[in-house]
C-alpha cells in the first residue's frame, strides 16, 4: 500500500515543513464546520495524527494543504457527524434536488450593491456564511477563503468538477440572498 518509505527524520521534516504551516487554515475550516472550539480542536488534532500515520501515502512536493483538507473533511463526515447525537439538520439529497430546479440557476435579482457591503462592518458576512447548509458552506470556504482551484476542490470533496461549479454557484446565490435580507433588516436597502 505504502508508496513512499520515509525515515523518521524525513517524516518529521515533511510533517513540520509541509503539514504544520496549514494549521490556521485547518482550524478555521474545522471551526466553521462544527461551530465549537473543542470539537474544532479535536478535529484538527485527529487530522494531523492521521496525516502522520498515513504519511507514506503522501507524495512529497504535491499539494499538502489539499491532502490535509481532504483528511479533515472525511474525518468530519465519518467520525464527527456519526459521534454527534444530532442528525444532520438537512438531508443533503433533498437539498440538492431542491436546488437543482431551474429557479436557483436563474440570476437572482437583488437590490444588493457592492457599496452596501461596505456598510457591513460587523459579523454579517461571517453569519451569512455560517447560516448556509454545510455542503454549500464548505465550497465557499474552500474556494473563497482558502483559494483552492476547482480541480483541487473536486479531489477534496470526491465530487465531479461540474458538481463543484454548480454547488458553488448555488452557494453564492444563497449567500447573496442572506446578505440582502440582512441589508434590508438594517435599513441599508
Amino acid at each position: 500500500m505504502a508508496k513512499n518509505q520515509y525515515s523518521d527524520e524525513q517524516k518529521n521534516k515533511v510533517f513540520n515543513e509541509e503539514f504544520m504551516p496549514h494549521i490556521d487554515s485547518l482550524y478555521n475550516f474545522a471551526h466553521r464546520l462544527t461551530f465549537d472550539e473543542d470539537d474544532a480542536k479535536d478535529l484538527v488534532q485527529d487530522t494531523y495524527l492521521k496525516a502522520y500515520r498515513f504519511i507514506e501515502s503522501f507524495e512529497q512536493g504535491t499539494n499538502a494543504k489539499a491532502w490535509l483538507f481532504r483528511i479533515l473533511k472525511n474525518s468530519f463526515i465519518n467520525d464527527f457527524r456519526k459521534k454527534s447525537k444530532q442528525p444532520p439538520k438537512v438531508d443533503y439529497q433533498e437539498v440538492e434536488t431542491f436546488y437543482n430546479s431551474d429557479d436557483v440557476d436563474r440570476p437572482i435579482t437583488t437590490d444588493l450593491r457592492a457599496e452596501t457591503l461596505k456598510d457591513m462592518i460587523g459579523d454579517e458576512i461571517s453569519n451569512a456564511l455560517n447560516s448556509l447548509d454545510v455542503d454549500f458552506r464548505t465550497v465557499i470556504i474552500l474556494c473563497d477563503l482558502e483559494g483552492f482551484k476547482y480541480d483541487e476542490m473536486a479531489k477534496i470533496l470526491d465530487i465531479p468538477i461540474g458538481t463543484v461549479r454548480s454547488r458553488l454557484h448555488r452557494a453564492r446565490n444563497l449567500l447573496k440572498e442572506k446578505l440582502s435580507s440582512y441589508a434590508k433588516k438594517m435599513g441599508y436597502i
Binding site: N28, D123, I125, S126, L129, I140, L145
Partner: peptide
C-alpha cells in the same frame, strides 16, 4: 469580504 472577514478563528 469573505477572505478578509472570515479567516479569524485561530487555533
Amino acid at each position: 469580504l469573505l477572505r478578509v472577514r472570515c479567516n479569524h478563528s485561530k487555533p
